[in-house]
């Protein structure tokens, strides 16, 4: 399996506050990584750097063979290959669910409208929400909105999917429907980096676990080892608190 994302000595500052400290990370194709850690530990910042929603100041980030920096000309092309699901869904409220899904394929990938709609319906079916296609985001429940957001990202046929706490803003009974959709996606072989506190999901899906604190990767390990035999005391403490 080949490397698709590579981070080398990445540092990031928000003014004087250092959010990321010497991050080194390699992600192979089809690998599933779950990142956990206390709030403010830099997990979200880390994955937002991968599609440059945040800029890193030092080090290298290479996605699918292309380095991301301020000189990157075809940043849009790289972003089109990296799907992202947000904590707050961020659906476009002025468009129907179907239009949310077809907009980027039509305008960014120049796909004919008919093909884009077919693709959108396929993905909406995949997250079991095809019957809501004509509705507007404001008319759906949180879980349905998040699944729509997942479908929207999938319509760009990305090589990598990033999840930024996808279930944190949901009511408990809706978390499962979103996680189920994500498990399906993982089984289909998508490369995934997921920031989440859903440890049940992590155990089921993740190949590797990462624990972050204070902008550093404290521990990276195979999932089984991470839960059964964590090395760092900080990880042990964290796991004892959330499990």
């Amino acid at each position: 399996m080949s490397k698709i994302i590579e981070l080398k000595n990445v540092n990031k500052w928000f003014d004087k506050f250092q959010a990321l400290k010497d991050i080194n990370l390699e992600v192979n194709q089809q690998e599933k990584i779950v990142i956990c850690g206390p709030s403010g530990s830099g997990k979200s910042t880390l994955i937002r750097c991968i599609n440059r929603l945040e800029e890193h100041q030092d080090g290298q980030i290479i996605v699918d063979g292309k380095e991301i920096s301020e000189n990157t000309k075809d940043l849009e092309k790289i972003r089109a290959e990296v799907g992202m699901v947000f904590q707050q869904f961020n659906l476009f409220p002025h468009l129907s669910i179907l239009d949310n899904c077809t907009l980027a394929p039509i305008w960014v990938k120049k796909m004919p409208k008919k093909d884009a709609e077919e693709l959108a319906m396929k993905n909406l079916e995949r997250v079991q929400i095809a019957d809501q296609a004509k509705k507007f985001p404001g008319q759906l429940s949180g879980g349905q909105q998040q699944r729509s957001a997942l479908a929207r990202a999938l319509c760009m046929e990305p090589k990598i999917m990033l999840f930024d706490e996808p279930t944190s803003a949901l009511d408990p009974e809706m978390i499962k429907e979103v996680l189920d959709a994500m498990v399906d996606l993982a089984k289909a072989g998508m490369t995934m980096i997921v920031v989440t506190h859903e440890m049940g999901f992590a155990k089921e899906v993740a190949d590797n676990m990462i624990f972050m604190d204070e902008g550093k990767i404290i521990e990276k390990a195979k999932t089984k080892e991470f839960f059964e035999n964590p090395k760092s005391d900080r990880t042990k403490l964290f796991l004892s608190q959330i499990l």
Partner: peptide, 20 residues
């Protein structure tokens, strides 16, 4: 979040502004 969602779908400045 609206800007970020548009960017994450690969839209450039003009597409993001005119469509979203």
């Amino acid at each position: 979040g609206q800007y970020e969602a548009a960017k994450s779908l690969g839209m450039g400045y003009w597409k993001m502004h005119f469509l979203i």
